[in-house]
Amino acid sequence: MVSSRLTPYYFLAPAILATAAIVLYPVASTLWMSFHDFVLYRPFDVPFTGLRNYERLLADEAFWISLWNSFVWVGLAVGLQFALGMTAALILNESFAFRSLARALVVVPWALPSVIIGLMFTWVYDYNLGLLNDILLRFGFIKSPVAWLADPDIALYAVIVALVWQGFPFFAVIILAGLQAIPGDLHEAAEIDGATRLQRFRHVVWPGLKGVILTALLLRTIWVANSLDVILVMTGGGPGYATHTLPLYAFLRAYSGMEFGYGSALAVVLTLFLISVAAFYVRRTMREAFR
């Protein structure tokens, strides 16, 4: 079979068509809305306002707080998910008695809907009736209960813990699959050559994993940056603006204020930030992949 120049496009066509059919229109209309004063309950009066929604952002205190929280949110949640997931994958790649059970149990957090996770953690964090305060009080780690979700200095981190718990199995599964693709012979050879475990990790494991890990990190960053259901359930963005992130703020503007124009502008700004992160990454990996 001779491959024509069109061959790759045949392989791509189904995915492109499906995506275009379903996603293109919503994305385009979000962009369109961001340039209009679009209030959902005023469908007959949608004036074009150009960049006014974007100008309004700059003077909006809540936007800046949300932006900063988003950085903290993405940085900590992705970083910790990765660290925990990597550790888990390395442990699970060893052989031990209850390995396949352990491999299956580790995915439990990932197998739960966000709404349930949000509610369970809220319940565990409860000031009066929560498990966490009760345990900490019993062991004497704290003198009086802590209002985990009502204290603005703690709330964001308390929510991040829930998200880390939910997300680390993703990294564990992805990295484990990558680890398994590394030929065992390589390990043995390295070990016979007297390489320490750290050396083996750097020279044998890491090169094989790098591509998968970078991709997983990028995809997870996008996912975490956009995820809001856990925050929504646990704090609704409060107390004050303490747990507002950009997508949550966009969501509140859109569905509570019904200001889809302004909400869309917030969403576009978030997307621009993510694109700049991704652009840096894509440039690097593409160069490597194009041999």
Partner: peptide, 30 residues
Amino acid sequence: AFSRFGFFGRRFLMTQFLTINMFPIVLMII
């Protein structure tokens, strides 16, 4: 296709697939 071919529009398409996922879904549901 992305992994085995070098073709016109490859990087563009790959980036587009990523970009499209960056929009917060909540605003797209209506």
